[in-house]
Design a binder for these strands. Sequence first.
DNA 1: AATGAATGAGGTTTCATTCAT
DNA 2: CATGAATGAAACCTCATTCAT
Lengths: 205, 205, 205, 205
Amino acid sequence: MRRILDKEVRRGQLVHAAIKVFAAKGYRSASIADIIEAAGVARGTFYLYFSSKLDAFHAVMDRYIELFKERVATETARSYANPLKVRQAIRESLLDWLRFYQENKDLAKIVFREATAIDPDYEKRCYDMLESCFQHWRESVTRFQKIGFVRRDVDPEFLNMVFSGVLIHVVLRHIIPERPPAIERIVDQWIEFIESGVKARSWLA
Amino acid sequence: MRRILDKEVRRGQLVHAAIKVFAAKGYRSASIADIIEAAGVARGTFYLYFSSKLDAFHAVMDRYIELFKERVATETARSYANPLKVRQAIRESLLDWLRFYQENKDLAKIVFREATAIDPDYEKRCYDMLESCFQHWRESVTRFQKIGFVRRDVDPEFLNMVFSGVLIHVVLRHIIPERPPAIERIVDQWIEFIESGVKARSWLA
Amino acid sequence: MRRILDKEVRRGQLVHAAIKVFAAKGYRSASIADIIEAAGVARGTFYLYFSSKLDAFHAVMDRYIELFKERVATETARSYANPLKVRQAIRESLLDWLRFYQENKDLAKIVFREATAIDPDYEKRCYDMLESCFQHWRESVTRFQKIGFVRRDVDPEFLNMVFSGVLIHVVLRHIIPERPPAIERIVDQWIEFIESGVKARSWLA
Amino acid sequence: MRRILDKEVRRGQLVHAAIKVFAAKGYRSASIADIIEAAGVARGTFYLYFSSKLDAFHAVMDRYIELFKERVATETARSYANPLKVRQAIRESLLDWLRFYQENKDLAKIVFREATAIDPDYEKRCYDMLESCFQHWRESVTRFQKIGFVRRDVDPEFLNMVFSGVLIHVVLRHIIPERPPAIERIVDQWIEFIESGVKARSWLA
DNA sequence: AATGAATGAGGTTTCATTCAT
DNA sequence: CATGAATGAAACCTCATTCAT
């Protein structure tokens, strides 16, 4: 009984080390030596928990998917029922997403940066995983259209493109390198942009 | 079978092959064997033109920077003088950027995806290169503000974030995998979004 | 076929193999393949014990220096206290030196023959090592002068030149190729020569 | 006619460059690139004059043998007829040998240092070449015995060992690195040593 | 005769994986 | 379970030699 817990703990240690190392060096550059050093275990031990380096990578991805699903579940539960507070709710939602990646920088690095072919299987997993993100955001758009916050004539796929693109960009270029501006400021500008665009009113339409 | 070519031509062949291979496999996974096979030359020939694999990568980056500077020069020369045609000019500008990456998919793949540490020098080059992109876009925003198209109260840095994020996202997820929608449709939606945002008018502000 | 050995034993095996191979082929001509074949281990095993071919060479030099220091220590402990037995003691001393190189022919080959630049560091090591030899012999001369066996007006540096030159020559041309005369005969002639020179007495000075 | 002279001149250039490079780096470390750079010719040109790197090395050895034979011829012609001037004549002879190697330092480096197997053929050439040196010195000893300068009971082979050993040592450790003492001083000490040995007279024989 | 681009065998080194302890 | 020495395929790189120009 205790043994099994130990096993899970040890595996967790290794996955944690793998995340750190893959984030710092990328899948290909990371070596088993890096991972076992980070985890403080012997070489052979690694192969007790993973059948190969690729298997460890899959375990890392699984960890991300797990966290991501939790995140989506929380998000889906969010209420936009009160029309007076929709703006506030969207603000919280965006902040939560940024906070999520802020708390999981290493996973974010791996997921958003490891886009090159690692193996045929991986490419699909990666694609599926991102697609599930995008699907979530497309659904969010539809939701905002239903409650009347977003115009019905906007293409959900296009809005997803904007959301995803900006989110990933902000994560990769501002959150991970810990550069300003702070996420609150980004979110405020973002919401204003979403609402009104940027065109000067004086301009003759 | 030995075929002697003009040095510049041969070098061009090799850079071309390197771009293909780095785009397909990523820097670390790509091997010299892959590159020389793609170029149809012998092993030793590679080292006549590059001192190392890393050197070949730098040559690829140089090629991108060269093309990028041309692109920016063309862009900077674009006239937004006629107020009646500003919308049209911006449309053309966005289309040109997407066409640029459409024509240089492999370079785009490398530049936007190879984010992991290849060598200390590379990290800086890559950062500088992206920064020069961003700088260009920030300046564009300021330009649009000067001609009165964009509101003065918008932060150029934030708009850059949006432009860059969406551009990179569209390139990576739609242009490179050759998935719909067509770039014209994307640009049209983009412009409308930029102008007006997405908020339904009926919504009580 | 995998056989796990004590680390020191395995390292000893490898150093031994390296000595054999470097002696037979010289540093530059010797390949890792030669060394691992001589040691009967796999390619990777070599790099568990040495970081590079040069590192292996340094290990070989270290081995020589170790043996040489032992030799010098034994030599320094030799007593020349009994004036009646000085000739005998010197004879033993010379014989011991020749026996030392006879027992370490491969090391002698490497040390006396690898005089060409291997790396900047090596050149200095090699020079220092030979210099320590010469220093020992210079001191020996002074010792023989103190006990009155050698004339005070002889320059120790010059006598060192003679000792070193003859010793190295005998090692390289007679001991290593296992050619006559036997070392006892060489030593007897040597001593007589040292004592009296070769000039015929009949010659008018 | 002129062409043929040109050819010889060009070949001489190349042999000269090869001597420099082989002396500086050793046969194995020296590359064709080094030699053609030193000679200031193109890669292909090298192979017009030598069939291979080894062939160039043989040409270098041939050059040494040529010079050495000249040296021996001059030496053999030297007269020791006047008994009053034998000491003086020997002094001149030794000085001439040292001057010979002083003037051909690079060749000396190659001949005395390249002792490791370059090819089966080379080993023999090198051996033969040194043997011809030794033969010359053995004959010199016999000559000195004939004229009564050297005792008849001294083994010519042994004296050769001393001469050769000291000569090579002086060349390698003093002349090539251009370190003191000056050759005149060495020769004076050498002659005194040869004549009388080093034993103090006070010592009870 | 001279050139130098091209070649590819062979060298050094790395590292994911195995397995005896 | 855990260890880490051992393995060898495969990577990068060098350089003597060839040959089209």
